[in-house]
Design a protein around this nucleic acid. Structure first.
Lengths: 224, 224
DNA sequence: TCACTTGTTTGACCGGCGTCAAGAAGGGTT
DNA sequence: AACCCTTCTTGACGCCGGTCAAACAAGTGA
């Protein structure tokens, strides 16, 4: 971990994001004034479950895994945040300790927004409150989607879904945006299970070479 | 379904709730003016997945199940709302169709708050926005909890958890607040699996007679 | 009270997925 | 290239929990 300056690409990422994208320039600058930027290596811990945190985190680049640990020591991912996503608002607004740990899933640059400042802005600035509301709705839907997938679909179906939603409509192949390791976690699977799912999908025209996924029959995947 | 007047106990329920509880009297009345109240029988459908809805729902009494249906026809519950809970905000704020169906899990009385009105209030009234933000954080945490439970715990552990969190600290027994059927759905289990979990817990000092649950050894449950 | 419907439990079976262990394949480094 | 270390794949095995079927219990209404 290492403190940094906000680069111009970082600003671009912020402006493109769901949350900051809808704020007027001045508010945007206002929030940013309370922010600090740091770099993390893969596996670095941003915060740990049960710690009390008072900041909101924003992924400027890289990837962050949110995971909970069970009392037997195993851990389960409850969310995965790519570039442009914001997280850890819940702890702040509910005045609670973190319900999960945040770990960099690859080398990442993270902005830390001062929680108090954000909370104060949310209480006085309509635009901020509005943006926050939409952000929270979006996040709620995300986890609800995950829950429903877990309960309704088999491993292979979840993987098929993931491939379909990540391969551009007009393309026949794409690169996984992260290690299979991480993907397994996101889908609630052991790495072995992911591997097996891929090999099941081979008979539906899916080729996997490293991180490169090729689809030869979209419909076969949709049927799954 | 049947249109009703708001009774005084209904008002009490509203005032006790997380969302309305933090609003000043006048705002409270303002929101309520746009509301309509109806009664539903068990299994009545409030709205169906993929329908476009423009209201927010509030459980005045009874119980509502939110469930998604997979393409194979099976369905999975993603939330269960007892008296005092509010739901279906996501569709409104994200301008989306419902991602799940809402079904009364027992005879229920439901208030429907006008979505446009609420959205307008959220955009102009700080108190409303604030209450909404906390409500959404709470809801987000709820589903995240469910997801984590699903991924970390076995059926028996989930049931043990449920019992512990629903039996008052100072008591040795309690009544299930709803049918086992419904509980199974909430825990992401088939009814049979719930039944078996109960019978496993018998050897840890749990007695089940109808809806009455007796705990003879709290620690045994916590150890699970 | 009895009949009928609906909910719950139990047994049998089996498929999905986690776990352990071993081997294969990449990716870096020297 | 040879080496190491990490990630990924494959096989073997076992358990958890879903499904089907049947017995049983509890409500509900006449």
């Amino acid at each position: 971990m290492n403190t940094l300056q906000l680069t111009s690409t970082d600003r671009a990422t912020l402006i493109r994001s769901r949350f900051f994208g809808r704020l007027p320039q001045s508010t945007f600058e206002d929030v940013l004034n309370s922010a600090s930027v740091s770099a993390y290596e893969e596996r670095d811990v941003l915060f740990r479950q049960d710690e009390s945190i008072n900041d909101v985190f924003f992924v400027l680049s890289g990837l962050v895994r949110l995971c909970r640990l069970g009392k037997d020591g195993r851990e389960a991912d409850v969310a995965l945040f790519p570039e442009g996503e914001m997280f850890a608002e819940t702890a702040m607004f509910l005045r609670q300790r973190a319900t999960a740990s945040a770990v960099a899933a690859k080398r990442s640059v993270i902005a830390r927004l001062n929680g108090g400042k954000l909370q104060q802005l949310a209480a006085t600035d309509h635009e901020v409150a509005q943006a926050l509301i939409e952000h929270l709705c979006y996040r709620g839907k995300m986890t609800e989607d995950l829950l429903a997938e877990d309960r309704l679909l088999t491993a292979t179906q979840r993987v098929a879904n993931f491939i379909l939603s990540h391969c551009p409509e007009d393309s026949t192949s794409f690169r996984l945006p992260f290690q299979k390791n991480i993907l397994a976690g996101k889908l609630g699977l052991a790495p072995e299970a992911l591997s097996r799912a891929f090999s099941t999908l081979r008979q539906s025209g899916v080729t996997v070479r490293g991180r490169l996924i090729e689809i030869h029959d979209r419909h076969a995947l949709e049927r799954y």
